[in-house]
Nucleic acid binder design. Structure first.
Lengths: 347, 347
DNA sequence: CCAATGCGAGAGAGCGCTCTCTGACCTCGC
DNA sequence: GCGAGGTCAGAGAGCGCTCTCTCGCATTGG
């Protein structure tokens, strides 16, 4: 860290080039002022052709790369954006492909805009603390939140500190929000089951502290009410194990159910296992519809009929919204992406 | 970007507090010098208790957070590390869980050390360019590479620019490298097949421009040579489709093969489909062993016997190596993590 | 009681860059 | 032919922080 004045071999005048070249050195070599080098480096057009060429040559010879910190100290920009995943790293990259897909969507869009993606997981209290200091400390130009939990105050906190925010999973916030049409998807699923002649349709809902969990349950309730059917509800936490447990529970409580809408494919996979254990055939005895349409859905036995949600698009849409915010352009406060029913063999 | 001097309502003297509080303002409020505030903020112990309390109070009242760029301009540290994924965002987050798992391992370890993770994908030429400028521009303290391709010069380039590097997938480099024991795993797989009485054992190899592809093929060749058996080889690119195609090819060329070692689970999944199409039973007619042990392996029909590699550990080990490098501590130049055979039903 | 020693706080010089302001030089127009 | 206007490069002031150096003051030994 501290500069070493002379290497082994001693007290020569100004040891060999050490550390990275600075703009000043480029200026000296090109025989111009710092300001001119800065103009060339930043692509300003008001520079004489000859000087420009000289500067570019000098920069290339020295291998000059602008120092990010120095630049952003004065410009107040960093050209990078954070994506906050409010889970532990372990949960973020679990089997459901949600976060990876969001990341993919975000990364693709930011890439194209020449911005960089900083990934932050805030599963622990310290991690949240760090993320806050990081964002507020000016490391990034803006912050995007994926799959927020209700109680999460981080977005608001950042907002108050003047950090641009775009989010997913928490619409009641003074920041642009991107989400999918949970209810519409569920409605299509339940209607499909009804159309197939199923009458005793249960649901395995997701966690109720997340919009995705609540909205899908609301959709189910609404659809059942509209069809004048009784709601039969079990609750899981979006994992396969919880789906299996919830299905067992449902079979015990309501042995004559003939269909189940499961609020995530992972839980649906667990439910299929429970049904197999119980000797129920799918879809003949019990029809199953999932939600997500992750890769696993096609590998299930039988392949899962499910509600497809465009996860990567959540990411790309968030990124685009963020880019607009950073440009100072107006942004839709709430964007709802469409879902669609993918019919396979399980219902 | 440009400071707005006066809001609507006019030319008052110094509008309301705007922008973030600076260290100087904290100093003024606490009635001490900038240096003292800096000492307190950075946890130095040589500060009088009363002053320390005063400074902390002032900082809290103003909501002071140090400006990252200003700090790193003088310290030359950023406390963040980049992980470079040399693929397009689309490939990075495809079905094989390789990159997500590596990210998980890295994130967990960096998290614990209070460092931040910056994710860079270098699938395109511009993305590579940007990543280079980013790292060399001092945005991060070091760079980690996951699953390098042979021809990738980026690590060497960074190394030359004095950026600390840790890598995976390319051992012949002047930087610490973490990898798994591909050959040992394959050896165990082939020996398992031989022990089960299989004699005509083919392989579906991965891309030969990656260490993972080559090493697994080498392992197969070696094991077959040791057993005095003829090698039967098809090549895929680690995707399910390529596995399916390769299996069809093998069945056409060598109809009487009785086992196949497939260099990735994704390809193995494709191979199983091809075998099903051809009416071959698994494992009775043809035994199948995969490599990776991703979640998909348990969902296959039949569940896949496969070589487990500790992917997340690649990440955590890389991260730990990087942390040591940054601390100036000595680091093992090459770390090989063990693989193990997981026996399920396909062989 | 005074010099030697030590400890903690302040002063001030940058880190590498951007950006405004100034001023040199040139081109026009009247 | 000379002033007005325009263009383009340089000078210089910071951005917010860290860190060395210096200095004041208290403590201690002779």
């Amino acid at each position: 860290m501290r500069r070493v004045e002379a290497g082994p071999g001693g007290g020569t005048v100004r040891g060999p080039r050490q550390g990275r070249p600075t703009l000043e050195e480029v200026a000296e070599r090109a025989g111009v002022s710092r300001a001119t080098v800065s103009r060339v480096v930043n692509g300003q057009t008001t520079v004489n052709e000859d000087l420009r060429v000289a500067v570019e040559a000098a920069a290339a010879e020295l291998g000059y790369v602008p120092h990010a910190a120095a630049r952003s100290l004065v410009t107040h920009r960093t050209d990078s954006v954070a994506l906050i995943l409010p889970e532990s790293p372990n949960r973020v990259f679990s089997d459901d492909q949600f976060f990876p897909s969001v990341i993919r969507g975000v990364a693709g869009e930011l890439d194209a805009a020449g911005k960089l993606l900083v990934l932050l997981t805030t599963g622990s209290a310290e991690a949240r603390e760090r993320a806050e200091r990081y964002a507020v400390g000016g490391h990034v130009d803006g912050v995007m939140f994926a799959s927020l939990h209700d109680a999460d105050l981080l977005p608001e906190l950042m907002l108050r500190r003047g950090v641009p925010v775009v989010c997913n999973g928490l619409p009641h916030l003074d920041a642009p929000c991107i989400d999918v049409d949970h209810q519409g998807g569920v409605l299509a699923a339940v209607e499909h089951l009804l159309a197939k002649g199923h009458r005793r349709i249960a649901t395995i809902a997701g966690p109720q502290d997340m919009v995705a969990g609540r909205a899908r349950l609301d959709g189910y309730r609404e659809a059942m009410t509209a069809a004048d059917r009784r709601a039969i509800i079990a609750v899981g936490d979006f994992t396969a194990e919880s789906g299996q447990a919830a299905m067992r529970q449902l079979l015990a409580d309501e042995p004559d159910l003939d269909a189940v809408f499961v609020a995530s494919d992972l839980m649906a996979h667990g439910a299929l296992q429970a049904l197999r254990e119980a000797g129920r055939r799918v879809p003949d005895d019990v029809a199953v519809v999932g939600f997500d349409d992750i890769a696993l859905a096609t590998f299930c036995d039988p392949p899962l009929t499910t509600v497809r949600q465009p996860i990567a698009e959540i990411g790309s849409t968030m990124a685009r919204a963020m880019l607009r915010v950073l440009e100072g352009e107006p942004v839709e406060p709430l964007t709802i992406l469409p879902t669609s029913l993918v019919i396979r063999d399980s219902a």
